[in-house]
Amino acid sequence: MIFNIVIFPGIFYVLLWTVALFWFFRKFIAALHKRVGPSFNGPAGSYQTLFDLSKLLTKESITPDGVNPYLFSIMPILAATIAMLPTAFIPWTQTITVVQSEYALLALVVLIGIEPFLLFLTGFGSNNKYSFLGGIRVLTQMISMETSFFLSALSPALLFGTLNLNAIVEQSSWLSFLILLPAFILYFIALLGLLDQPPFNIPDAEQEIVYGFYTEYSGTNYFLLKLAEFSEFMAVFAGAATLFLGGYKGLFFDGFIFLFIKMLLIAMFMMVIRASTPRITMKQMLHFSWSYLVPLSLLNVAWIMLAKIYLLGSLS
């Protein structure tokens, strides 16, 4: 258990993931930008993000005047902790699942869904106009994106008749992948919204409201918020891979490496969208979400039910 908390899939793993993914994002988007990206420190600049994060850890965290210092400083810790918790429910390999639970999927979804609310509170507690606007935007985006996120994330549960993630992975097959494909697409779009990624990077739109809820944060607090963001990436990517892409199941053998590759593929796809799509506005996001995404998610639930009865009739 202690190994699980400290090393894998606990704190050390999350830190390593944060540092490595940060570097990977920078390198990957640099290639899309026709740039070089970090290149001086270490092989292919891979130490760069390590140095960046250690620099942030050692810098002074400035608490601005007129804020509640407890709320201001406790939110990043809370955000990082809660963002790390879902890793405990993910079946990383056949044997490693820290918390075996019949309700793992529910826990995963709830823990992911709570995160934007914490970010809203960081913005709310910053006593800054930009942060406040950013916080409001996070909340608006959360409300409009989470409906379809929940509906699409719960589709596998509906199909397989269980909330246990291990059972979902074991039951998954090529056929179930095809049936869940619409749900996966909806999940991916909602994921872009939840993670504030382009074209839905409205809450921290730096050209509009400086840095949204991040604006007043610096040093360790900023590091913790970034850690929370990247842990959130991990939870959401791992959730997608587990729910729709068969988790650790591989081509010739099963193992953690396949889960990891699937997560990276999702990350790369997200980056390609980031490099080619400008930001949309709040109004357009709301319109898109409530006029298209939510109705489609409901239709998807109907599709899953029909597929379960007529295509997988033997399974139920």
């Binding site: 930008h33 382009p198 739109a205 080619s276 799509t277 400008p278 930001r279």
Partner: peptide, 16 residues
């Protein structure tokens, strides 16, 4: 113009 919408690829390609 594109930078103002949070997309930096155009600026980079054009710089190149």
């Amino acid at each position: 113009f594109y930078n103002a919408l949070g997309l930096h690829t155009v600026a980079m390609w054009n710089m190149d």
